[in-house]
């Protein structure tokens, strides 16, 4: 039994890309203090919208654009409910996921069985979306750590009352962050339908949105950590497929479980380190998930 490390790595990049996009988007929203559990719903919406647009136009690029718009549009429902009507972020996010899954199951029916147009190849035989995902990591790191808008975004997520007191538009910053998260989640979902599976199937994101949420915690709200987490998850996914193909004497169910088990184990290890270790406080934004209301 031989498993070639290079080919595994190339496959890993593909498997990691949907989660990388979604997790980077969620990271930006969470650094602004918004916990959006609707990632799965925005991904599946992006998967369908992207597939439909790509199929109709024959251009995968237009497909990803449509997916970004659809994801951002869906996230605006979340933004309206949580930022203006001050609804509970956890409940609203869960509802968004259920809404996205249901909506796409209904509107996706006509697209079942159709084929996606071919992806445009990029340098080194990897498509452009893989490259874009990797490029986003240093870009977002630089934005958050080095630019003034990034500083303001972190300030809003860290202490929204203080940010408001200094005159920063807390609500506007958060809405923009939610929209950005929605757009990236949509593109991540579209990667699954356009570039991986090459067709539309109901519920095809299969929990990738939840993995993305876990990876943001795993990454301790750092873009480089998100890259590591996405690659780790992608690696386990690819490896277990390879092991299945190689006919290893381990039950298939156990192998299919591996990526999810790996996620849970990593999260447990992080919590344990925070609770018992010397690493100090958690890196979570202090205002994460808390509603903000200013008295004028």
């Amino acid at each position: 039994m031989m498993i070639d490390p290079l080919s595994v790595f190339i496959l890993l990049l593909g498997a990691a890309t949907p989660i990388l996009f979604a997790a980077l988007g969620e990271l930006v929203a969470e650094r602004a203090g918004v916990l959006n559990l609707g990632v799965e719903g925005m991904m599946i919406t992006g998967a369908l919208a992207g597939f439909a647009a790509a199929h109709a136009s024959g251009s995968p690029a237009l497909g990803f654009l449509a997916a970004a718009i659809a994801g951002a549009a869906l996230s605006m429902t979340f933004a309206a409910l949580t930022q203006f009507l001050l609804s509970n972020q956890v409940a609203t996010g869960l509802a968004l996921t259920l809404f996205g899954l249901g909506l796409t199951a209904m509107f996706g029916k006509p697209y079942e069985g159709m084929k996606a147009p071919a992806m445009m190849p990029g340098p080194l035989g990897l498509n452009w979306m893989i490259w874009l995902g990797i490029a986003l990591v240093p870009l977002l790191w630089w934005f958050l750590a080095r630019t003034r808008p990034g500083l303001i975004l972190r300030a809003v997520g860290e202490n929204h009352d203080a940010a408001h007191g200094l005159g920063y538009p807390v609500r506007r910053v958060r809405i923009l962050a939610i929209g950005f998260g929605g757009a990236l989640a949509g593109m991540g979902g579209a990667y699954i339908s356009i570039a991986t599976v090459l067709q539309w199937t109901e519920g095809m994101t299969a929990g990738a949105g939840w993995i993305a949420l876990a990876i943001v915690v795993f990454a301790q709200w750092n873009p480089w950590g998100v890259l590591a987490g996405a690659w780790l998850f992608g690696g386990v996914t690819v490896l277990q497929l390879r092991l299945q193909a190689a006919g290893v004497a381990v039950p298939v169910q156990l192998l299919s479980m591996a990526p999810y088990l790996a996620t849970i184990i990593v999260l447990v290890l992080i919590s344990a380190r925070q609770k018992f270790g010397r690493s100090g406080g958690a890196a979570a934004p202090a205002s994460l998930g808390r509603p903000f209301h200013a008295l004028k």
């Binding site: 003034r148 500083l151 303001i152 300030a155 860290e158 203080a162 007191g165 200094l166």
Partner: peptide
């Protein structure tokens, strides 16, 4: 205090 605990002194001052 309208300070941001997780940030540095310089970042806090820049925000003001």
């Amino acid at each position: 205090f309208s300070l941001f605990d997780a940030m540095t002194v310089a970042e806090n001052i820049a925000l003001g």
